[in-house]
């Protein structure tokens, strides 16, 4: 296995910083806006983004976590059953601008499920997508991210994994050459 690190710890923190600034540019003080992290791995990213935004803006930001398990289209075909995670959206999303956050965008099927799940909480006025890593090839649905940390060209057999590490200074993004 020759794994490749495409974003080391230092670059990753710079990227997160840039993504936050981009959000502030577009959403200002985040009134009428909510951030929603996609369970399970998107939440690890959205937790960090929201934490940074709250420090920079010093205002409360509406933040929820969304589980897509029950909305997936590969319920029977994926071979292994997914474990359902917690959904906690304790506000109404009716009429709000939503920023959906996931760590890696690949086939687009998780985001398709997330959009369906989101509909059950009301009609958002708009939904935009943030992905830390945008895998350009092998998309199976017409879904594109609006805020991108890094775009990479990978093959279907490869795995892109974000390792958030045990402490704050040990995170990185890795491409695994083979499926583990």
């Amino acid at each position: 296995m020759n794994n490749r690190i495409i974003l080391d710890n230092e670059l990753l923190h710079l990227t997160l910083e840039r993504l936050c600034r981009q959000l502030i540019e577009d959403y200002g003080d985040f009134s009428d806006t909510a951030i929603i992290g996609v369970q399970p791995r998107g939440v690890l990213l959205s937790d960090r983004i929201v934490e940074k935004l709250r420090i920079i803006l010093k205002t409360p930001i509406l933040y929820g976590r969304l589980d897509t398990t029950f909305y997936r289209d590969d319920f029977r075909s994926s071979g292994k059953q997914l474990k359902a995670r917690e959904t906690d959206i304790e506000f109404t999303i009716e009429g709000k601008k939503i920023i959906l956050i996931d760590d890696v965008l690949f086939t687009g099927r998780t985001i398709r499920a997330a959009l369906d799940a989101l509909l059950d909480y009301g009609r958002a006025s708009e939904v935009k997508l943030m992905a830390l890593v945008n895998r350009r090839f092998n998309r199976e649905l017409p879904i594109q991210p609006d805020f991108i940390g890094l775009t990479v060209d990978t093959q279907a057999g490869e795995v892109v994994s974000v390792d958030w590490g045990k402490d704050k200074n040990a995170s990185c993004v890795i491409i695994l050459k083979e499926k583990p």
């Binding site: 398990t69 029950f70 909305y71 319920f75 369906d116 799940a117 059950d120 909480y121 009301g122």
Partner: peptide, 9 residues
């Protein structure tokens, strides 16, 4: 939830 239904099955 207000919409108490998921499309899973």
């Amino acid at each position: 939830r207000p919409i108490k239904k998921v499309p899973t099955l």
